[in-house]
């Protein structure tokens, strides 16, 4: 085994990673996080500050920071950018009216120096609703097609049913683990 591989393996085994969970209000961030940790999702209120949860997946301890998405809170997002290993951006796939708005917020995030090169996973949430947008429209509406400086992936999911959440976490761990 080469030294580099060895270092990587070591790093992988005892590594704690920091994941930022962002998106507009009502996108379903808190519901996603609770569902991932198998908690009850029946009484979730809009997040005023932030929640942190540790999830373990493939030897990774993932500390996920879920931050409120209401407009008044968005200016505080920047307090959380340091040392981010991956960005999980949640959208409400059935909210066509706000697709471009969430795209704008995401574009601002991606311009942040502290988040440069950080892999992006877009959780296209609420797929259980009938009018959920297809992947190509999401990619266009969020301006993902002009991104060249980081890896990105769209994961369709539903925090309500849990579909897709595990796959999303798997992609995240593999991408972080191989970087």
């Amino acid at each position: 085994m080469g030294l580099l591989t060895l270092l990587r393996k070591l790093r992988r085994n005892d590594r704690e990673v920091r994941i930022l969970l962002l998106g507009l209000d009502n996108a379903g961030k808190t519901t996603c996080l609770k569902k991932m940790s198998e908690e009850d999702i029946t009484h979730i209120m809009p997040t005023q500050g932030f929640n942190i949860k540790s999830l373990t997946h493939d030897n990774f301890k993932m500390n996920v920071w879920d931050i409120g998405g209401q407009r008044a809170i968005r200016p505080y997002w920047r307090n959380y950018y340091d040392n981010t290993d991956a960005l999980l951006y949640v959208i409400d796939s059935a909210d066509r009216a706000r697709l471009e708005e969430t795209g704008q917020e995401l574009n601002l995030l991606l311009q942040e120096e502290k988040l440069a090169g950080v892999p992006l996973m877009v959780l296209a949430n609420k797929q259980d609703l009938l009018n959920a947008l297809p992947a190509k429209e999401i990619a266009e509406g969020l301006n993902l097609l002009s991104i060249r400086d980081r890896k990105w992936q769209i994961q369709a999911c539903s925090a309500k049913t849990g579909d897709g959440l595990n796959k999303g976490m798997e992609w995240m761990t593999k991408v972080i683990g191989s970087s």
């Binding site: 993902l144 991104i147 060249r148 890896k151 992936q153 994961q155 796959k167 798997e170 992609w171």
Partner: peptide
Amino acid sequence: PMDLGPTWGFQD
């Protein structure tokens, strides 16, 4: 290769 499932994105 690792099986990462379907790609819906961009990886260079």
